[in-house]
């Protein structure tokens, strides 16, 4: 047989016999059911959230007051048993970004014009382009988007919790004077990041000249 293009081979292999009939309405029905489930969970979560708001508020106040009593430390444990992340005001420049606050016990692992990767100290995965379990800060060419829109410090943030179960992404528009676009931070789930802490961290990030957006 003559030399063959891989591209041609793959097209042959992926081709169907014309037996792939489908009904778009079935896909639509599945999508609607999934959306309804998510909305029901949000409503239930909202009611539960109101009930526990006092507890969360107490934890947050203690966190920002720097309370280090045993009781406070215990309250800063997340429900998964991971200690809550604490931000410290230690300005840091990395890549094309300036951070007003950084998570205590986490360090920059990779930095360039496209993204900064920050990992918990001692993370065995030291590859700067491996993002699982790490913070990834990037400029996004897409508009901010998410399942939920929230406000913090006078800015609008879009929260996307659907990160395949292992991360939450939060995005917001850059400020006047920064390169125009969307700044997005990917936070690992189950690593002690409370929502307020995530918002506070992202709000502290300044995008510098030279930052390059990722295109997705």
């Amino acid at each position: 047989m003559n030399d063959t293009d891989l591209n041609d081979l793959l097209h042959t292999a992926g081709r169907t016999d014309g037996t792939d009939s489908f009904d778009a309405r079935a896909d639509l029905a599945r999508g609607r059911r999934a959306l309804a489930r998510i909305r029901r969970r949000r409503v239930a979560g909202g009611v539960l959230g109101l009930a526990v708001a006092g507890v969360i508020g107490t934890t947050a106040v203690r966190e920002y007051a720097g309370d280090d009593t045993p009781t406070a430390r215990q309250e800063q444990q997340s429900s998964s048993g991971v200690e809550a992340v604490r931000l410290v005001s230690q300005p840091l420049d990395a890549g094309s970004y300036r951070f007003g606050k950084v998570p205590d016990g986490w360090s920059v692992q990779g930095e360039n014009a496209f993204r900064v990767t920050i990992a918990k100290d001692g993370d065995p995965d030291t590859h700067p382009d491996s993002f699982i379990g790490k913070l990834v800060i990037m400029l996004d060419s897409n508009a901010p988007a998410g399942d939920e829109v929230t406000h913090h410090n006078g800015r609008e943030f879009w929260v996307n919790s659907d990160g395949g179960g292992d991360h939450t992404s939060i995005s917001t528009l850059t400020r006047d004077g920064e390169p125009a676009g969307t700044i997005l931070v990917q936070f690992p789930n189950d690593a002690g990041w409370a929502k307020l802490t995530m918002l506070e961290f992202l709000d502290s990030v300044e995008v510098l000249e030279g930052a390059q957006p990722s295109v997705g």
Binding site: G31, I38, N142, A145, G216
Partner: peptide, 26 residues
């Protein structure tokens, strides 16, 4: 099916992405 269900749930984001096919591929 899983991909299309995710796309439906995130449809507002998909349509804003300027490249819905690329979004689906990803």
């Amino acid at each position: 099916q899983t991909t299309l269900t995710k796309l439906y749930v995130q449809w507002p984001k998909v349509r804003r992405s300027d490249n819905p096919v690329g979004y689906a591929r990803r």
